[in-house]
Amino acid sequence: MTSPGEFYQRDRMWHPPAYDKDYKTSVSRSPQYSLISLQNSISEVTGPVFGHNDVDPLDKDLIFNYAKSGESAIGERIILHGRVLDENARPVPNTLVEIWQANAGGRYRHKKDTYLAPIDPNFGGCGRTITDENGYYYFRTVKPGAYPWRNWVNDWRPAHIHVSVFGHAWTQRLITQIYFEGDPLIETCPIVNTIRDKAAIGQLIAALDRNATIPLDSIAYKFDIVLRGRRSTLFENRLEGN
């Protein structure tokens, strides 16, 4: 039995730590013991497989996927697009990308959200798609608004879109948040600042992409997602290379 090629170790100094007192909820939800490091077995190098049949084409269009017939969501119309790559800069094709977000006023369609900004009757706030053979994905949506949250007395989240990606292995599973270029709230957000490395934060900020706008229709932001790369096991009797 040859051992499966492992994925590159997660850089835990790059990712946020579990405990950060300034993001208050993490205080009671962070393990105190260290993580136990595992080399990948078959249980970790495998992961769920999704296909284009799992999603509908309209699922990736948040302007229309919850709108009444003939209507559409209110807000700044944007295309959110990019590639899912691994750390070797190889595309990750056929992987499920799911997003969720508040509406243009910063209100979530969730029974637990009681913020006074109103619900948009034509906006659900979630979308999903499968990357193509080159790892590309795109969504159409409205730019979410900032919203207040009970952390410090006057904390506001920057405009953001949550994103969930699978990759092809359980080790690659990732949830993160997409921010928008130029938003002054990014710098002061305790959730953003759970990440210590400025370069790591920069990687979460989608760039305005004028080349991808649809003139007179939608502005565009580009956001690439990088999942863990995989090792070729040079000294473990594995014939296939990288």
Partner: peptide, 8 residues
């Protein structure tokens, strides 16, 4: 490339 950092 660096892995995209996680957020809650």
């Amino acid at each position: 490339l660096k892995e995209t950092a996680s957020q809650t």
